[in-house]
């Protein structure tokens, strides 16, 4: 199974991963190989099955609405690549 170049480019855009021109074919071949594997699923008879199953039948616990987190900006922003005046900096966001 081969994936078209256009498709790979679309995936790369959605996933925000730059793919070098020279590697697109190879990436496509290997993705195709994996998709061939997962295509085996199509043969399964799953009629009448609810796919939204959870591993463990449990329900969501709810947290009380109490403030438990204190300001840790300094410690957390120490990990950031670029900050100024308490803000995380990124190249200009254009809406």
């Amino acid at each position: 199974m081969n994936i078209e170049r256009q498709e790979i480019e679309k995936l790369a855009t959605l996933a925000r991963i730059a793919i070098e021109e020279g590697t697109i074919t190879g990436v496509g071949e290997r993705l195709g190989s994996v998709l061939e594997l997962v295509d085996q699923l199509q043969a399964a008879d799953t009629s009448g099955l609810d796919g939204k199953s959870y591993s463990i039948q449990a329900i969501q616990r709810l947290r009380e609405d109490e403030v438990t987190e204190i300001n840790q900006r300094e410690a957390l922003q120490a990990l950031a690549p670029d900050t100024e005046e308490g803000l995380f900096l990124v190249p200009k966001v254009i809406e």
């Binding site: 100024e84 005046e85 803000l87 995380f88 900096l89 990124v90 190249p91 200009k92 966001v93």
Partner: peptide
């Protein structure tokens, strides 16, 4: 996203 703060030109500041 804050676009016109006191920070460097060409960047946006993110307040979460």
């Amino acid at each position: 996203s804050l676009h016109d703060g006191d920070f460097r030109h060409g960047v946006s500041g993110i307040d979460l």
